[in-house]
Write a protein that binds this DNA or RNA. Structure first.
Lengths: 196, 196
DNA sequence: TTGACATGTGACCGTTCGTTCTCTATAATA
DNA sequence: TATTATAGAGAACGAACGGTCACATGTCAA
């Protein structure tokens, strides 16, 4: 039960921090939505800042486990349509998984005030997707599905626009459908442009 | 002198809000860095929130004046190298102009909590650049500098990666030089890909 | 010269914040 | 059964916050 409360505090902290920022979140409300009184928090964390640090530990560990390990290499598609399918699957996950959405929002808000949030933001927003797609494009070139080119440049040119539309979904969820269609259209346009 | 103080409060508010967010900014410090006491603020604004609203008014007006009016259409380059030069000039401005940098930071921080900040963020981060470059690419196609294609799609594919690197500069200023080089490399790669 | 207005000061207000403390209830352990 | 560790309740703390008010100062017009 003890660890359970601690986990629930962390989950709610991600929720609140991603909505109101660190400063805009107060532990009274946070604990109240757990049905507890604010002083109960101090049985599990030494301070508000300690919640923040634990949350970042968790986010960094989650990112490393999910995207950092080499066994999570993306499968190289066997056709152009396979790239579209793979892309749309990833986009669907990253747009609808609440924890991931909240993580991106939190990083957007706090990226300028915390060094670890800054580093993680660059991974989430720029280098992460690019580094995942670089070997994938290399593989597609080797298979003769894409013309020979700099795979890292292609990965950057491919993932950055998609990332921009994912941000749009975070910011304006009512535009999610439109964004998904734009991503698919972009993916197809990209393939048509770079096909062998 | 009165209006001067009001303008200086707004300038400092942009500074503080973009660094610490709205909640993380307190008027005592803000006015102290003007050499004034916090109650002096209430001679110029009715509340802290009123500063925020005035600041957003100013940001929206500035954006409209600079990018919204049709007479600010980008000139269509006469050569591929002209596109690179135009791009790098714009990038150089937007990365080094303090007011613009602070505006982007502020929008990153507050985009989820204020409707007007949300709208302005989408313009700054996504649609603004794209809509500026769409007629430019149309013009380059008409001149035979680029192959015929959907100019809006090209503008999106061109500006989104550049925007991502501009965000990197905001987040990690020590990587500014690297980012500028990456933007130039991307611009050249883009032209090579889409040249007629 | 006088009176109105604009600007800034400093004391003060109520509220909310994070944090600490003492006390209680419960469940596992010896 | 007696003991001890755990988890929460609730009162209270000092500090910081946004905001108000009476007052002083300077400027400019009547």
């Amino acid at each position: 039960m003890a660890n359970d409360t601690k986990e629930r505090i962390l989950a709610l902290a991600l929720d609140q921090f991603s909505q109101n920022g660190y400063d805009g979140t107060n532990i009274r409300e946070l604990m109240a939505s757990l049905g507890l009184v604010k002083s109960a928090m101090y049985r599990h964390f030494g301070s508000k800042k300690e919640i923040w640090n634990a949350l970042l530990d968790q986010m960094i560990a989650y990112y490393g486990a999910r995207f950092g390990s080499p066994e999570h290499l993306l499968p190289v598609p066997d056709s152009p349509e396979g790239l579209v399918a793979l892309t749309m699957g990833m986009v669907d996950f990253t747009i609808h998984d609440e924890k991931v959405v909240k993580t991106r929002k939190l990083l957007s808000i706090e990226q300028f005030r915390d060094d670890r949030a800054r580093d993680l933001a660059t991974k989430h927003f720029l280098t992460g997707l690019r580094d995942m797609f670089t070997p994938l494009f290399q593989g597609m070139m080797d298979k003769g599905l894409l013309r020979r080119d700099d795979p890292a440049m292609l990965a950057f040119a491919y993932t950055a626009p998609i990332s921009a539309l994912i941000h749009l979904c975070d910011r304006e969820p009512e535009k999610t459908e439109e964004a998904i269609q734009r991503i698919e259209a972009f993916s197809r346009h990209f393939i048509a442009t770079y096909k062998a």
